[in-house]
Simulated scan of single mutants.
Amino acid sequence: MQTRLKTLFVSIIITLTVSLSANAQKNADKFIVVLDAGHGGKDPGNLGNGYREKTIALNIILKIGAALEKIPDFKVIYTRNTDVFIELRERAAIANRADADLFVSVHCDSYTNQAHGAGTFVMSLSKSSQNLNTAKKENEVIYLEDNYEEKYSGFNPNKPESLIGISAIAEENLDNSILLANIIQEKMVKLKRKNRKVKQDVFWVLHNTYMPSVLVETGFLTYKKEGAYLNSKKGQTEMAKAIKDGIVSYKKQIYGNIVDNNYIIKTEDVETVSEEKIINKIIYKVQIAASSKKLEPKSYNFKGLNEISREKEGSLYKYFYGYTSDLNKIKSMQSEAKQKGFKSAFVVAYKEEKRISLQKALNSVSN
């Protein structure tokens, strides 16, 4: 009897091992996206004009997921796909356990006046009182969790200093989070939604994720016309498509060919930009693209733009336009890059050849 049980036990282990190995191989080449519908269960979210944020967010997430699941190289994981309560920390943990490539959280906003429009947030530090109001509302759900004092170490979403004190997401993920946020924002604005732009702030749901992560505020339920739109099947379908298209475009930009011509050049060493050596000053560049493709930093590979530089980070190559300590000049170069077709171009900053956050650079200059 013992021998037969041992044989059965070994057989089960072998079957599980083979199954897990097969699943691992099956998912090895998949682009994993974790979709997070804000709130849920005992947490309804905001109830502007009688609408339920938790229901609208879930409907949009399920539509995004259904569309992505039709694309062979995508794998979708939901933090929730029903009306259940999921703790903020667990939402991030789900993404981390899955070793996801992206984390996208969907919400609806509210305010006391006629504020409206769609906006996208990434994890960072911000002292903007308006941004902090949004962050505070989305973070207050921790009070519904058991033992929240223990889990969140005295964190108080009602105190701005508590929000500001949280450490920012890893810098390398922040870059790609901003890229994803810009692409999604562009897609939403094409629906003739008021552009509330990409902002950086402190959200617990983004705080502990180890991959590029964004939080999308699809609109304000408290604004009558917008609330009705987001509560409608048409509105939810359009918003879901915009976010889905943003995710797909991001993947193409990161892992596909970033140029519109056939010049994929094999190169020996990176061509350094003709640059002014500015000691102990903030240097600005415009990040125009990131890709797994290694391209020679020449103007013919980047739609005629000169002053191109390239940096390698992990398996990605990042491409930059410009090199200056003049903030006005770099903003002008960012506009030029966007006019050339690099719609998601954004400004980055360096100090003593080390990458720093743009907020830190601006604070340093103003002090």
Results as ranks from 00 to 15, higher is better:
L5C: 05
T7V: 11
V10P: 03
S11M: 10
S11V: 06
S11L: 14
I13V: 15
T15C: 14
L16W: 09
L16R: 00
L16I: 12
N23G: 13
N23S: 13
A24L: 14
A24T: 15
K26Y: 15
V34Y: 10
V34G: 10
G40L: 07
K42A: 06
K42I: 15
D43G: 08
N46W: 00
G48Y: 06
Y51T: 00
I56R: 01
L58W: 01
I60D: 02
I71G: 00
P72A: 05
F74H: 07
Y78C: 03
T79C: 05
R80Y: 01
N81T: 02
N81F: 06
N81K: 14
I86Y: 01
I86E: 06
R89N: 12
A92W: 06
N96F: 08
A98M: 04
D101N: 15
L102A: 05
L102E: 05
V104A: 09
D109N: 15
T112E: 11
A115M: 03
H116F: 12
G117A: 10
G117C: 10
G117Y: 11
G117K: 10
V122G: 00
V122W: 07
K127M: 03
T134V: 15
K137D: 15
E138V: 07
I142E: 04
L144F: 12
K151H: 11
K159F: 04
P160D: 13
L163D: 08
I166T: 09
S167D: 14
S167N: 14
A170L: 06
S177N: 05
S177V: 05
I178G: 00
L180H: 01
L180Q: 04
I184P: 00
E186F: 07
K192P: 00
K194A: 12
R196D: 10
K197G: 11
K199P: 00
K199C: 04
V202M: 14
W204I: 13
V205S: 00
L206C: 05
M211W: 04
M211I: 09
S213W: 01
V214Y: 10
V214R: 08
Y223K: 11
K225I: 08
E226M: 01
A228M: 09
K233G: 00
E238G: 01
A242K: 05
K244F: 11
K244C: 14
S249N: 13
S249M: 12
K252Q: 12
G256N: 09
I258P: 13
V259A: 11
Y263F: 15
I264L: 10
E268L: 12
V270K: 14
I282T: 12
I282Y: 01
Y284A: 03
Q287S: 03
S291P: 07
K293D: 10
S299V: 03
S299M: 07
S299W: 04
N301L: 06
E307K: 15
E307A: 14
I308M: 02
E311F: 02
E311L: 10
E313V: 13
Y319I: 08
F320W: 04
L327V: 11
N328Y: 06
K329Y: 12
M333F: 13
S335F: 08
E336S: 12
E336F: 07
A337E: 09
K338L: 01
Q339V: 02
K340C: 07
G341C: 10
G341P: 11
F342L: 08
K343Y: 13
V348N: 02
V348D: 02
A349K: 05
K351L: 14
E353P: 03
E353A: 14
R355M: 03
L362P: 03
S366H: 11
S366N: 14
N367K: 14
